[in-house]
């Protein structure tokens, strides 16, 4: 089993926003989805997931409603707001630039 990679500071927000960009998800599902999409490479520290969600919500980028989960229990579902969508675009562009720059350095150096 490979050691799960620590998330780069600040990228958790980006990942959360990306995962709920297409559909409403509750906290646990977000963590699962990130793990799944990254082929188990990225493992979300579940303890820090909720403070992050609250922070994003406070900034108005995501919003949450109570709903019923797939297991028929009360759960809080998060989705992206319009402001959040714009923010995600911006962060994604930023990320692309950063990762391209890093790979460039790695290749040439």
């Amino acid at each position: 089993m490979t050691r799960p990679t620590d998330l780069v500071q600040g990228t958790l927000d980006l990942l959360i926003m990306r995962t709920i960009a297409t559909e409403k998800l509750h906290g646990w599902a977000i963590a699962q989805r990130i793990q799944l999409l990254s082929n188990d490479v990225l493992q979300v520290n579940q303890g820090s997931l909720y403070p992050a969600l609250q922070r994003l919500e406070r900034q108005g980028w995501i919003t949450a409603d109570w709903g019923v989960s797939e297991t028929n229990r009360r759960a809080r579902f998060y989705r992206l707001t319009t402001a959040g969508r714009r923010r995600l675009e911006w962060e994604r562009a930023d990320w692309d630039r950063l990762s391209a720059a890093i790979s460039l350095v790695m290749r040439t150096a």
Binding site: H26, G27, W28, A31, Q32, Q46, Y50, Q54, S69, T71, R73, R74, A75, R76
Partner: peptide, 17 residues
Amino acid sequence: ADLADEMRFHLERETEA
């Protein structure tokens, strides 16, 4: 209380999984 509720659900879901 909301946050506690949410995290409790998370733990239950994880346990089920």
